[in-house]
């Protein structure tokens, strides 16, 4: 079982470092957000008495890069279906749960790496945080967000036959989750309706956790963030594994 989990984890890692264009390509969007929004809204944010916007925005953008990258990693199952490799894994005499777990942990690991790259870029742009104090908590939150959304991607990918539905998933699931999560604006000041949505948005807890570990300011509180993400990740893995186990070719 552990060997199977490991070999599928390794497969994701190998595919990641072999796809330089994907690594670079996925950095484009976060960089644009950091530069355009960070510097564009910076002065207004400052005038409103909220402090440095880049400091506020960076954790949000990190979470964005992780959610996009990890959902895509999960959905890659559709590529495997189209290129045929899925048959090889589904006919194998190993539990489908271990296959799913391996690829989810692998996808989550690369999404976390991608998040770290974004933090480095943000630091170059002027973002500051106490590395020594926050690194372990930061990694934990990044990884939990990544696991949750890779598993979600796997669940969706197991149900979809081809990539036609992918745009739908991005526009009606990922985008709303991202924009309502408080990644771009402070939830404290937002209208009630937005905070209500944020409360049921899993990513909001991820963003809040990241902000909490990077800058010691939170909306829900770190223990709540941690508990919510942890439970949802477990549920999503179970759900993803279930759908994956039902997959046919």
């Amino acid at each position: 079982m552990m060997k199977v989990v490991y070999i599928f984890w390794l497969r994701q890692i190998k595919k990641y470092y072999r796809s330089k264009s994907r690594i670079i390509g996925s950095l484009g969007q976060p960089v644009l957000f950091l530069l355009a929004l960070g510097f564009g809204f910076g002065p207004i944010f400052q005038k409103a008495g909220q402090g440095n916007y880049l400091q506020f925005l960076a954790p949000g953008v990190v979470s964005m890069s992780i959610i996009f990258f990890s959902v895509f990693s999960g959905i890659e199952i559709i590529f495997d279906r189209q290129f045929g490799f899925l048959k090889e894994t589904l006919a194998a005499p190993v539990s489908r749960f271990s296959i799913m777990l391996g690829r989810t942990l692998g996808g989550a690991s690369v999404a976390t790496l991608q998040g770290l790259l974004v933090i480095i870029i943000a630091t170059i742009a002027g973002f500051r945080f106490d590395v020594a104090a926050s690194l372990s908590l930061l990694l934990l939150f990044m990884f939990l967000i990544a696991v949750l959304f890779t598993a979600l991607g796997t669940a969706i990918g197991s149900l979809m036959e081809d990539f036609h539905g992918f745009q739908l998933v991005v526009n009606f699931l990922i985008m709303p989750l991202f924009f309502l999560s408080g990644a771009l604006f402070p939830l404290e000041e937002a209208p009630k309706i937005l905070t209500a949505f944020a409360a049921i948005d899993p990513l909001a807890y991820g963003v809040d956790g990241l902000r909490g570990s990077l800058m010691q300011t939170t909306h829900f509180g770190l223990p709540v963030d941690l508990a919510v993400l942890f439970c949802l990740s477990a549920i999503m893995i179970a759900l993803g594994a279930y759908f994956f186990s039902k997959a046919q070719v």
């Binding site: 190998k14 796809s19 290129f83 045929g84 899925l86 048959k87």
Partner: peptide
Amino acid sequence: GIVFQDPSLDEDL
């Protein structure tokens, strides 16, 4: 064991 009619390799490996 099985050898499929259609491709089933991982081309990125």
